[in-house]
Design a protein around this nucleic acid. Structure first.
Lengths: 234, 234
DNA sequence: GGAATAGTGTCTCTCAGACACTATGAC
DNA sequence: GTCATAGTGTCTGAGAGACACTATTCC
């Protein structure tokens, strides 16, 4: 290992995580206050260096860093994009591989002291280019929510369809029709009924569901699916 | 600059580009033969180190690297994803920020000697984890083609709708209906008619079009759009 | 006129949204 | 029974795919 090509310095490389949770104010981001320069005292995304001796890959780095800084483990973690350039860190040319993460509402109460939760639509100024990273994350999540079970990762492992619909509505910021929602969720096959029912509430007890296949988050392969598709066969 | 956190080595960081073009065999990838170890003599994606003294950011690095290795400038370049870990480079823990690029058919004839073009569905074994990078790129492009003007970047700046439809069909690997295709292209507003018409062919002359707004590739904001959307308001 | 390609009109069938309905629990 | 919530049935309107049609050029 050691050293890049002769004559070329290596950029500073870090991972940063946009960890999202759902609060009374809607989609919100977990932030930490920086204890060291640069941007000492400013709010920032939880992030840190790669530990080549203990991380298998960047996703492992992201998971380790976010747990270390926030004190909790996210229910979902996925790569967002990589940000780079001379301008984003006063120490010099830098690379940040950004991830986004989901945190179950139940876990948000166990966040480490010093962390803060801010609504994604009303963020304070952040260190580095973290505002831009959050903006990209927000667009990606709002978009991906519409064709995936991602929002279910804000809920406990078992949930009712009413709870799931509520989460979708808060993530998307719009109200959904119950019948259409259930039809889609059912046809998509992304959730599976557990046998159990919710006890103790008012009204008729609800069936419980869980994410059908954690490895298969979206409706079909990778990104974006049944789209306008520019005129297709049958 | 200089050095990471105390006690942590920096990973080897490179950019690699999946440059695509459209040949008689369909969607194809531009590959180069490696002149140095590791994987000396093997086919690989064009890639290289970051030059912090001349590149503004990683996209600039990708553009520089792909031009240097292939001899041509792509018509489109976008970040794909970042690949990382101990296993992918025999020299040690490494990071590759991967981009994908489109090359106009006209430019493919000017490729540097030593480059090879291979159909994306029948690739030879590649160096590092470049097979995996190409697989991710293929999925992303096939998906994104269905809701964007991306395939137009395989064509000259001005093109007819028949040519555009042909390109879409070859990228997607399916035949499209002419009427539906034109309706979508028109409604999406992603192409704009130039005043001119194609001269010299057989039959009725065709109107020429160009990409309406190079900054706005997809149908709406960022990724994926009019999707099932899990039941929505009005 | 015919051949070739460009471009349009229109039918149908699917499916998402709307909304009223039924079901099952607690009291 | 009423209230509250869960869950379903059905109508309708927009739009995608299919395909036949018209338009404009060259010969």
């Amino acid at each position: 290992v050691g050293g890049q090509e002769r004559g070329h310095e290596a950029p500073i490389t870090t991972v940063d995580v946009v960890m999202l949770t759902l609060t009374g104010d809607g989609l919100s981001v977990v932030l930490v206050r920086r204890g060291r320069p640069p941007y000492q005292g400013a709010l920032a995304l939880p992030g840190g260096y790669i530990h080549v001796d203990e991380d298998d890959d960047l996703m492992a780095s992201a998971m380790r860093v976010v747990e270390a800084k926030s004190g909790v483990a996210p229910s979902y973690l996925e790569q967002l994009a990589t940000f780079s350039g001379l301008g984003r860190d006063p120490r010099g040319w830098s690379i940040s591989v950004a991830y986004y993460a989901f945190l179950r509402a139940e876990a948000a109460s166990s966040l480490a002291p010093g962390t803060e939760i801010h609504p994604i639509d009303r963020l304070p100024p952040l260190a580095f280019d973290h505002d831009r990273i959050v903006a990209v994350a927000r667009a990606r999540i709002r978009s991906k929510a519409s064709y995936s079970v991602l929002p279910a990762y804000f809920l406990p492992e078992e949930f009712t369809l009413a709870e799931l619909q509520d989460v979708y509505e808060r993530v998307m910021g719009e109200t959904l029709d119950k019948s259409s929602f259930r039809r889609k969720v059912d046809e998509a096959g992304l959730v599976a009924g557990t046998g159990s029912v919710r006890e103790g509430g008012m009204g008729r007890p609800a069936q419980m569901f869980r994410i059908a296949d954690p490895a298969r988050v979206t409706l079909d392969r990778d990104i974006a699916r049944s789209s306008p598709s520019l005129g297709g066969p049958r």
